[in-house]
């Protein structure tokens, strides 16, 4: 049976403290890319009761995604933004979700991301990562941006880190493990990096700005 909104909120406050929960619940976070990073970030933030998630990905769920991304075999062929919305609604029925099936470009980024307090870069292509990072830092200096680079391969879990590069720009990952070279991308290492990103989001919302 679905809990009431009051019961759900009470449970969150019990676990996170009333002050933190108030900050989480009133925040909007945009997640750009809903693959191994983005789908895992979204689940962590939905569980934390972040008030609104803007979910952006142009792609559909593919069978090759299931080894690390938070989709189900029954969702193959669905738009990722809508499949993820469906999954998040089962976990956190009272958060607000704005799904978009499109590519983030220089032209549409500002409108898409305007409402977000924090933006997560969760793309897989390095050119797309750099494009979004430059765009947000140059054109939207008031936003917090948490990007990721380096989570491929079978390297140690302990090399995944969060660094604060600029006042409002954080970078998670080991900085060097590239999928093309490492030849693999495994769920736990990608989830670690996603967890770093999601945790940094919550820390920023809780006004803890150091990694």
């Amino acid at each position: 049976m679905m809990p009431t909104k009051e019961a759900w909120m009470q449970a969150l406050e019990q676990r996170h403290g009333k002050d933190n929960q108030c900050k989480f619940s009133s925040a909007t976070v945009a997640i750009c890319g809903l693959g191994g990073l983005g789908s895992n970030i979204a689940i962590a933030l939905a569980r934390a009761g972040v008030g609104k998630l803007i979910l952006i990905d142009f792609d559909k769920v593919d069978i090759t995604n299931l080894h690390r991304q938070q989709y189900k075999a029954t969702q193959i062929g669905m738009n990722k933004s809508e499949a993820l919305q469906e999954n998040l609604m089962e976990i956190a029925p009272y958060i607000s979700i704005e799904p978009h099936t499109l590519c983030v470009t220089q032209e549409n980024a500002k409108g898409l991301l305007e409402e977000a307090d924090v933006i997560c870069e969760a793309f897989d292509q390095p050119e797309a990562k750099a494009m979004l990072t430059n765009l947000v830092l140059e054109k939207m200096p008031e936003k917090y941006l948490i990007a990721a680079s380096g989570m491929a391969g079978m390297g140690s879990a302990n090399t995944i880190k969060t660094r604060r590069i600029l006042k409002r720009f954080y970078l998670c990952g080991d900085g060097e493990s590239e999928v093309a070279e490492a030849g693999s991308l495994v769920a736990p290492r990608v989830m670690l990096c996603a967890a770093h990103q999601a945790h940094m989001v919550l820390r920023i919302l809780a006004e803890e700005l150091e990694p």
Partner: peptide, 24 residues
Amino acid sequence: KAEYESIVLEDGDSVEVVSFVGGG
């Protein structure tokens, strides 16, 4: 990015080049 060609590095500057790798 538009200023890469015009900004001249000065003695004492501190620079970080963030180079993204694929995977996500």
